[in-house]
């Protein structure tokens, strides 16, 4: 790891100022993802701005049916917090599937959703790929078994986060403090950008902006399921994940539904067409089969990752069967 200076400011305002004054400063929260990049020399900031001393950046509260989750809330806290269990059980379920107990105790909710891609070409210090400013995405001609089947190109990374798809399904927004100290609210549906728009960044946040909290409506009482397929049952990132949420009326017909995929596209993939196909009908096998097929419509697998198409359909099927109560 290259040498760097370190600051632990006491407020988000000071953190924003330090970032504004230092073009290659980086924010650190849990330090797991940035630390990994710094050890590998993928990023070598001259200044690390650590957020641990910023007051009120962690904690979970419920105000008027809206959950507010501080950006520095540990992933571990989401697993067992009573407010999250009642008002966003899908998020608690996703949190339980993240990494390992140690990483859940270290990593923060905002750090998890903004973590950089796990693509092995991106993480390889010797590879100068498109995302790092090079000319080519090495996954195109290389080993692309873990890469995108949806929304890829010209770079083929996948969203590594389990929390981001769940939070998108839950209609969450990020509250961001900008360098001029104003606050703006960015819905997660607008936070992430695909490589077609920007092959170097996964989100729209500018240097100097700090996510201070996430806000989301209560989803208490809605049927929900988070399913994650991976090679090992611990530690691994998702080959594919499904965050499913649905509101069913007394007649058994679906009133509204959300289906968001992780691990298959550069960003959390909102399978809106699949979710909408469920509305107005009961969750029977036909409806589930049609939604599973629609969830991967438009998939363009690479040489080694066609398995993700069927894997995702089966995961969606299983998730919807779980919503039905199977």
């Amino acid at each position: 790891m290259k040498r760097f200076s370190f600051a632990a400011p006491g407020s988000a305002r000071e953190a924003v100022r330090l970032l504004a004054e230092n073009e290659d400063a980086r924010l650190m929260a849990g330090g797991v993802d940035l630390g990994h990049e710094m050890k590998r020399g993928i990023r070598s900031p001259s200044l690390v701005v650590h957020l641990s001393r910023v007051a009120r950046l962690d904690g979970i509260t419920l105000n008027d049916g809206r959950l507010e989750i501080g950006a520095l809330t540990k992933i571990q806290a989401l697993e067992s917090n009573e407010v999250v269990l009642e008002h966003a059980p899908l998020l608690a379920a996703a949190a339980r599937e993240v990494a390992t107990p140690q990483l859940r105790a270290m990593g923060t909710v905002a750090g998890n959703i903004l973590q950089r891609p796990q693509c092995w070409y991106y993480r390889d210090p010797d590879s100068f790929c498109l995302r790092k400013g090079g000319k080519h995405c090495h996954a195109v001609a290389g080993d692309n078994r873990y890469h995108a089947i949806l929304g890829g190109g010209p770079c083929h990374i996948v969203c590594p986060s389990d929390l981001a798809p769940a939070l998108l399904a839950l209609g969450a927004s990020a509250v961001v403090t900008a360098p001029d100290e104003t606050e703006r609210t960015v819905p997660l549906s607008e936070l992430f950008v695909g490589p077609g728009v920007d092959p170097h960044n996964e989100h729209v946040l500018a240097h100097g902006e700090v996510v201070t909290r996430l806000v989301l409506p209560s989803s208490a009482g809605l049927a929900n399921a988070f399913l994650k397929a991976r090679e090992r049952t611990a530690w691994d990132f998702a080959l594919s994940s499904v965050s499913a949420l649905c509101d069913t009326g007394p007649d058994g017909a679906v009133r509204s539904a959300r289906l968001v995929l992780g691990g298959v596209a550069p960003n959390p993939w909102d399978a809106a067409e699949a979710a909408e196909s469920l509305v107005g009908r009961p969750l029977d096998d036909d409806a589930i089969g049609a939604a599973a097929a629609a969830s991967v419509r438009g998939a363009r697998p690479l040489r080694d990752n066609a398995y993700k198409v069927e894997l995702t359909q089966r995961l969606v099927t299983k998730a919807l069967e779980r919503l039905r109560g199977d």
Binding site: G31, G35, H36, V48, H50, Q76, Q102, A105, M106
Partner: peptide, 25 residues
Amino acid sequence: SGACGACTVLLDGEAVYSCMTLAIT
């Protein structure tokens, strides 16, 4: 690199990977 657990210590009572924790923090 936070991928094996051999460096696990307790920080304020929580198990963490000391290899991915900066001492200054």
